[in-house]
Protein backbone atom coordinates (compact mmCIF):
# COMPACT_ATOMS: atom_id res chain seq x y z
CA UNK A 1 0.00 0.00 0.00
CA UNK A 2 1.58 3.27 -1.05
CA UNK A 3 1.31 6.56 0.85
CA UNK A 4 -1.49 7.93 -1.33
CA UNK A 5 -3.55 4.79 -0.76
CA UNK A 6 -2.84 4.72 2.96
CA UNK A 7 -3.83 8.38 3.28
CA UNK A 8 -7.06 7.79 1.36
CA UNK A 9 -8.27 4.91 3.56
CA UNK A 10 -7.01 6.28 6.88
CA UNK A 11 -8.64 9.68 6.24
CA UNK A 12 -11.92 8.05 5.23
CA UNK A 13 -11.99 5.90 8.40
CA UNK A 14 -11.08 8.89 10.56
CA UNK A 15 -13.85 11.01 9.00
CA UNK A 16 -16.49 8.32 9.40
CA UNK A 17 -15.78 6.98 12.87
CA UNK A 18 -12.95 9.03 14.30
CA UNK A 19 -10.47 6.16 14.60
CA UNK A 20 -6.99 7.32 13.69
CA UNK A 21 -4.59 5.05 11.80
CA UNK A 22 -1.18 6.68 12.01
CA UNK A 23 1.77 5.85 9.76
CA UNK A 24 3.03 3.28 12.26
CA UNK A 25 -0.25 1.35 11.95
CA UNK A 26 0.03 1.17 8.17
CA UNK A 27 0.69 -2.58 8.09
CA UNK A 28 -2.13 -3.26 10.51
CA UNK A 29 -4.55 -1.37 8.27
CA UNK A 30 -3.22 -3.07 5.19
CA UNK A 31 -3.69 -6.52 6.76
CA UNK A 32 -7.26 -5.61 7.58
CA UNK A 33 -7.95 -4.22 4.12
CA UNK A 34 -6.77 -7.53 2.66
CA UNK A 35 -9.97 -9.06 4.07
CA UNK A 36 -12.01 -6.66 1.95
CA UNK A 37 -9.93 -7.56 -1.10
CA UNK A 38 -10.84 -11.19 -0.51
CA UNK A 39 -14.51 -10.26 -0.06
CA UNK A 40 -14.56 -8.60 -3.49
CA UNK A 41 -12.23 -11.23 -5.03
CA UNK A 42 -9.74 -8.54 -6.00
CA UNK A 43 -6.18 -9.64 -6.62
CA UNK A 44 -4.21 -6.45 -6.03
CA UNK A 45 -4.30 -3.58 -3.63
CA UNK A 46 -4.45 -1.16 -6.56
CA UNK A 47 -7.74 -2.78 -7.63
CA UNK A 48 -9.18 -2.16 -4.17
CA UNK A 49 -7.98 1.43 -4.18
CA UNK A 50 -9.48 2.15 -7.59
CA UNK A 51 -12.75 0.54 -6.55
CA UNK A 52 -12.85 2.79 -3.50
CA UNK A 53 -11.91 5.88 -5.53
CA UNK A 54 -14.80 5.15 -7.92
CA UNK A 55 -17.20 5.47 -5.02
CA UNK A 56 -17.59 3.69 -1.69
CA UNK A 57 -20.87 1.76 -1.66
CA UNK A 58 -22.79 1.19 1.57
CA UNK A 59 -21.50 -2.42 1.69
CA UNK A 60 -17.93 -1.28 1.16
CA UNK A 61 -18.38 1.37 3.85
CA UNK A 62 -19.73 -1.16 6.37
CA UNK A 63 -16.84 -3.52 5.60
CA UNK A 64 -14.36 -0.70 6.12
CA UNK A 65 -15.90 0.26 9.45
CA UNK A 66 -16.00 -3.37 10.53
CA UNK A 67 -12.33 -3.95 9.86
CA UNK A 68 -11.25 -0.56 11.21
CA UNK A 69 -12.66 -1.18 14.68
CA UNK A 70 -10.76 -3.32 17.08
CA UNK A 71 -12.98 -6.21 18.13
CA UNK A 72 -10.55 -7.92 20.47
CA UNK A 73 -12.07 -8.40 23.88
CA UNK A 74 -12.63 -10.93 26.64
CA UNK A 75 -15.13 -11.83 29.31
CA UNK A 76 -14.88 -10.04 32.69
CA UNK A 77 -12.15 -7.81 31.30
CA UNK A 78 -10.32 -6.11 34.17
CA UNK A 79 -10.90 -8.10 37.34
CA UNK A 80 -10.92 -5.01 39.56
CA UNK A 81 -13.89 -3.63 37.66
CA UNK A 82 -15.97 -6.77 37.89
CA UNK A 83 -15.02 -7.43 41.51
CA UNK A 84 -16.05 -3.87 42.39
CA UNK A 85 -19.20 -4.20 40.37
CA UNK A 86 -20.29 -7.29 42.29
CA UNK A 87 -19.07 -6.13 45.69
CA UNK A 88 -20.31 -2.53 45.95
CA UNK A 89 -21.28 -0.79 42.71
CA UNK A 90 -24.31 -2.89 41.82
CA UNK A 91 -25.49 -3.56 45.41
CA UNK A 92 -25.35 0.16 46.28
CA UNK A 93 -26.94 1.19 43.01
CA UNK A 94 -29.77 -1.30 43.46
CA UNK A 95 -30.36 -0.20 47.06
CA UNK A 96 -30.69 3.42 45.94
CA UNK A 97 -33.21 2.71 43.16
CA UNK A 98 -36.82 3.72 43.79
CA UNK A 99 -39.12 0.67 43.91
CA UNK A 100 -40.17 -0.49 40.47
CA UNK A 101 -37.39 1.33 38.61
CA UNK A 102 -35.48 -0.65 36.01
CA UNK A 103 -31.72 -0.73 36.35
CA UNK A 104 -30.27 0.50 33.06
CA UNK A 105 -26.72 -0.17 31.91
CA UNK A 106 -25.09 0.73 28.61
CA UNK A 107 -22.12 -1.09 27.14
CA UNK A 108 -20.86 1.26 24.44
CA UNK A 109 -18.69 -0.40 21.77
CA UNK A 110 -19.64 -3.91 22.90
CA UNK A 111 -17.82 -5.72 20.08
CA UNK A 112 -18.71 -9.45 20.14
CA UNK A 113 -20.75 -9.09 23.33
CA UNK A 114 -18.33 -10.29 26.00
CA UNK A 115 -18.71 -7.11 28.06
CA UNK A 116 -22.52 -6.83 28.17
CA UNK A 117 -22.89 -10.58 28.73
CA UNK A 118 -20.33 -10.42 31.56
CA UNK A 119 -22.42 -7.66 33.16
CA UNK A 120 -25.56 -9.77 32.72
CA UNK A 121 -23.86 -12.78 34.32
CA UNK A 122 -22.63 -10.58 37.18
CA UNK A 123 -26.24 -9.50 37.80
CA UNK A 124 -27.48 -13.12 37.64
CA UNK A 125 -24.84 -14.07 40.21
CA UNK A 126 -25.85 -11.13 42.41
CA UNK A 127 -29.45 -12.39 42.33
CA UNK A 128 -28.28 -15.34 44.41
CA UNK A 129 -27.29 -12.97 47.20
CA UNK A 130 -29.76 -10.09 47.10
CA UNK A 131 -32.86 -8.71 45.46
CA UNK A 132 -32.09 -7.51 41.95
CA UNK A 133 -34.76 -5.44 40.17
CA UNK A 134 -35.57 -5.71 36.48
CA UNK A 135 -32.55 -4.68 34.49
CA UNK A 136 -31.83 -3.82 30.92
CA UNK A 137 -28.42 -3.81 29.33
CA UNK A 138 -28.13 -1.88 26.08
CA UNK A 139 -25.10 -2.91 24.05
CA UNK A 140 -24.05 -0.89 21.03
CA UNK A 141 -21.34 -1.11 18.43
CA UNK A 142 -20.60 0.49 15.09
CA UNK A 143 -19.82 -2.84 13.43
CA UNK A 144 -22.73 -4.88 12.10
CA UNK A 145 -20.48 -7.94 11.89
CA UNK A 146 -19.56 -7.59 15.56
CA UNK A 147 -23.24 -7.18 16.50
CA UNK A 148 -24.19 -10.23 14.44
CA UNK A 149 -21.67 -12.27 16.39
CA UNK A 150 -22.84 -10.76 19.67
CA UNK A 151 -26.40 -11.64 18.70
CA UNK A 152 -25.45 -15.28 18.10
CA UNK A 153 -23.94 -15.30 21.62
CA UNK A 154 -21.83 -18.21 20.42
CA UNK A 155 -18.13 -18.40 21.22
CA UNK A 156 -15.22 -20.68 20.45
CA UNK A 157 -13.59 -22.73 23.18
CA UNK A 158 -10.66 -20.31 23.23
CA UNK A 159 -12.94 -17.28 23.53
CA UNK A 160 -14.88 -18.67 26.49
CA UNK A 161 -11.63 -19.41 28.28
CA UNK A 162 -10.57 -15.77 28.10
CA UNK A 163 -11.66 -14.22 31.37
CA UNK A 164 -14.62 -16.47 32.10
CA UNK A 165 -14.20 -18.66 35.21
CA UNK A 166 -15.08 -22.29 34.51
CA UNK A 167 -17.96 -22.47 37.01
CA UNK A 168 -19.69 -19.58 35.22
CA UNK A 169 -19.08 -21.17 31.84
CA UNK A 170 -20.87 -24.40 32.70
CA UNK A 171 -23.65 -22.54 34.48
CA UNK A 172 -24.55 -19.98 31.83
CA UNK A 173 -23.54 -21.64 28.56
CA UNK A 174 -24.48 -24.78 26.69
CA UNK A 175 -21.89 -26.69 24.73
CA UNK A 176 -22.50 -27.27 21.04
CA UNK A 177 -21.33 -30.45 19.27
CA UNK A 178 -18.65 -28.47 17.39
CA UNK A 179 -17.00 -27.33 20.65
CA UNK A 180 -18.53 -23.85 20.47
CA UNK A 181 -20.38 -22.57 23.52
CA UNK A 182 -23.69 -20.70 23.39
CA UNK A 183 -24.95 -18.37 26.07
CA UNK A 184 -28.26 -19.49 27.60
CA UNK A 185 -31.34 -17.54 26.38
CA UNK A 186 -32.17 -16.16 29.83
CA UNK A 187 -28.85 -14.26 29.86
CA UNK A 188 -28.90 -13.42 26.17
CA UNK A 189 -32.38 -11.88 26.42
CA UNK A 190 -31.34 -9.37 29.07
CA UNK A 191 -29.10 -7.59 26.55
CA UNK A 192 -30.52 -5.39 23.77
CA UNK A 193 -28.12 -4.99 20.87
CA UNK A 194 -28.17 -1.90 18.70
CA UNK A 195 -25.94 -0.44 16.00
CA UNK A 196 -24.50 2.92 17.03
CA UNK A 197 -21.66 5.13 15.86
CA UNK A 198 -20.21 7.00 18.84
CA UNK A 199 -20.05 10.06 16.61
CA UNK A 200 -23.87 10.05 16.33
CA UNK A 201 -26.45 11.27 18.85
CA UNK A 202 -27.07 9.16 21.98
CA UNK A 203 -30.40 10.71 22.92
CA UNK A 204 -32.47 7.84 21.46
CA UNK A 205 -30.87 5.46 23.95
CA UNK A 206 -32.23 7.15 27.08
CA UNK A 207 -30.48 7.48 30.43
CA UNK A 208 -28.35 4.98 32.26
CA UNK A 209 -27.27 4.28 35.81
CA UNK A 210 -23.99 2.87 34.52
CA UNK A 211 -22.17 3.42 31.27
CA UNK A 212 -19.25 1.27 30.20
CA UNK A 213 -17.18 3.02 27.55
CA UNK A 214 -13.92 1.15 27.92
CA UNK A 215 -10.95 0.97 25.59
CA UNK A 216 -12.75 2.95 22.92
CA UNK A 217 -11.57 6.51 23.42
CA UNK A 218 -7.91 5.57 23.11
CA UNK A 219 -8.47 5.17 19.38
CA UNK A 220 -10.10 8.61 19.02
CA UNK A 221 -8.62 12.04 18.37
CA UNK A 222 -8.77 14.49 21.29
CA UNK A 223 -11.66 16.60 19.95
CA UNK A 224 -13.68 13.43 19.37
CA UNK A 225 -12.88 12.22 22.89
CA UNK A 226 -14.13 15.48 24.36
CA UNK A 227 -17.29 15.42 22.26
CA UNK A 228 -18.08 11.78 23.13
CA UNK A 229 -17.40 12.23 26.86
CA UNK A 230 -19.63 15.29 27.09
CA UNK A 231 -22.46 13.57 25.26
CA UNK A 232 -22.07 10.48 27.48
CA UNK A 233 -22.44 12.76 30.50
CA UNK A 234 -25.92 13.75 29.29
CA UNK A 235 -27.00 10.07 29.19
CA UNK A 236 -26.13 9.45 32.84
CA UNK A 237 -28.89 9.46 35.46
CA UNK A 238 -28.39 11.55 38.55
CA UNK A 239 -25.49 9.89 40.40
CA UNK A 240 -24.93 7.69 37.34
CA UNK A 241 -21.42 6.37 36.89
CA UNK A 242 -19.19 6.18 33.84
CA UNK A 243 -16.45 3.57 33.49
CA UNK A 244 -13.49 4.00 31.17
CA UNK A 245 -10.75 1.51 30.27
CA UNK A 246 -7.88 0.96 32.67
CA UNK A 247 -5.51 2.89 30.40
CA UNK A 248 -7.92 5.80 29.92
CA UNK A 249 -8.65 8.84 32.05
CA UNK A 250 -10.34 12.25 31.93
CA UNK A 251 -7.02 14.07 32.21
CA UNK A 252 -6.83 16.64 29.45
CA UNK A 253 -10.30 15.70 28.22
CA UNK A 254 -12.90 17.01 30.64
CA UNK A 255 -13.18 18.60 34.08
CA UNK A 256 -16.92 18.03 34.27
CA UNK A 257 -16.47 14.74 36.14
CA UNK A 258 -15.31 13.83 39.58
CA UNK A 259 -13.30 10.67 39.98
CA UNK A 260 -14.52 8.02 42.41
CA UNK A 261 -11.84 5.50 43.39
CA UNK A 262 -12.69 2.48 45.47
CA UNK A 263 -10.66 -0.69 45.98
CA UNK A 264 -8.65 0.10 42.87
CA UNK A 265 -11.73 0.64 40.74
CA UNK A 266 -12.04 4.03 39.05
CA UNK A 267 -15.41 5.51 38.09
CA UNK A 268 -16.53 8.95 36.96
CA UNK A 269 -19.53 10.90 38.11
CA UNK A 270 -20.80 14.09 36.56
CA UNK A 271 -20.20 17.09 38.85
CA UNK A 272 -23.48 18.62 37.77
CA UNK A 273 -25.40 15.45 38.69
CA UNK A 274 -23.77 14.71 42.03
Amino acid sequence: MNKEQFDFFSKYIEKEIGIVYSEENRFQLQARLNDIMKFYSLSTFDDLYHKAKDGISSTFKQLLLDIATNNETLFFRDQKVFQGLAKFVLPELISSLPPGETLKIWSAACSFGQEPYSIAIALMELKKKMFVPNFQIVATDISSIALERANSARYSQLEVQRGLPIHLLIQYFTKDPDDYWTLKPEVRSSVRLQIKNLKDSFTDLGNFHLIFCRNVLIYQKLDNKIDIIHRLEKQLTQKGRLLLGSAESMIGISDRFSQVIREGMIMYQSKSNS
Binding site: L158, Q161, R162, I166, I170, K175, D179
Partner: peptide
Protein backbone atom coordinates in the same frame (compact mmCIF):
# COMPACT_ATOMS: atom_id res chain seq x y z
CA UNK B 1 -12.14 -33.56 27.98
CA UNK B 2 -14.63 -30.72 27.68
CA UNK B 3 -18.11 -32.09 28.37
CA UNK B 4 -20.16 -30.16 30.91
CA UNK B 5 -20.56 -33.40 32.85
CA UNK B 6 -16.81 -34.01 33.11
CA UNK B 7 -16.15 -30.40 34.10
CA UNK B 8 -18.99 -30.39 36.66
CA UNK B 9 -17.75 -33.62 38.22
CA UNK B 10 -14.23 -32.29 38.69
CA UNK B 11 -15.46 -28.96 40.06
CA UNK B 12 -17.73 -30.84 42.47
CA UNK B 13 -14.73 -32.94 43.51
CA UNK B 14 -12.91 -29.71 44.36
CA UNK B 15 -10.56 -28.67 41.56
CA UNK B 16 -10.03 -24.91 41.44
CA UNK B 17 -10.10 -24.27 37.70
CA UNK B 18 -10.24 -26.07 34.40
CA UNK B 19 -8.36 -25.43 31.18
CA UNK B 20 -9.65 -27.06 28.02
CA UNK B 21 -6.98 -28.11 25.52
CA UNK B 22 -5.93 -26.69 23.19
CA UNK B 23 -5.15 -23.52 25.09
CA UNK B 24 -3.04 -20.43 24.50
CA UNK B 25 -0.42 -18.62 26.55
CA UNK B 26 -2.78 -15.83 27.64
CA UNK B 27 -5.41 -18.33 28.81
Amino acid sequence: RNSIEDISNMLAAGVSEYIMKPFTKDI
